[in-house]
Simulated assay, not measured.
Amino acid sequence: MNAYAAFFILFIPVLLIYGTIQYFSFKNWTSVYIALNDDSYFQAISKLKQAGVRYKIKSSFDQTSTPMFGGNRQRHYEIYVKEKDAHYASQQLYS
Rank of each mutant, 00 (worst) to 15 (best):
M1R: 01
N2V: 07
Y4I: 12
A5V: 13
F7T: 02
F8M: 14
F8P: 01
I9H: 00
I9C: 01
I9L: 05
I9T: 08
L10N: 07
L10S: 09
F11G: 04
F11C: 09
F11M: 10
I12Y: 01
P13D: 00
P13R: 01
V14A: 13
V14G: 05
V14W: 06
L16W: 02
L16P: 01
L16R: 00
L16M: 05
I17W: 03
I17V: 13
Y18G: 09
T20P: 00
I21Y: 11
Q22R: 13
Q22K: 12
Y23L: 13
Y23N: 05
F24P: 04
F24N: 09
F24H: 08
S25K: 12
F26D: 04
K27Y: 10
N28F: 07
W29I: 01
T30N: 08
T30M: 06
S31R: 15
V32L: 03
Y33G: 06
Y33F: 15
I34R: 13
L36Q: 12
N37D: 15
N37G: 02
D38R: 14
D38Q: 14
S40P: 05
S40N: 14
F42K: 12
Q43F: 10
Q43C: 07
Q43P: 03
I45N: 07
I45K: 10
S46G: 07
S46C: 04
K47P: 04
L48D: 03
K49D: 15
K49R: 15
K49P: 01
Q50G: 09
Q50F: 10
Q50V: 11
A51Y: 06
G52T: 05
G52R: 04
V53K: 09
R54D: 14
Y55D: 07
Y55G: 06
I57C: 07
K58G: 04
S59C: 08
S60W: 05
D62T: 07
D62A: 11
Q63E: 14
T64D: 12
S65E: 13
M68N: 04
M68P: 00
F69G: 04
G70L: 03
G70Q: 03
G70I: 02
R73D: 03
Q74S: 12
R75H: 06
H76N: 14
H76D: 08
H76I: 15
Y77N: 02
E78Q: 10
I79H: 01
Y80H: 10
V81E: 01
K82M: 08
K82F: 05
E83L: 09
K84W: 05
A86N: 00
A86E: 05
Y88P: 00
Y88F: 13
Q91T: 07
Q92G: 00
L93P: 01
L93V: 08
Y94H: 12
S95V: 12
S95Q: 15
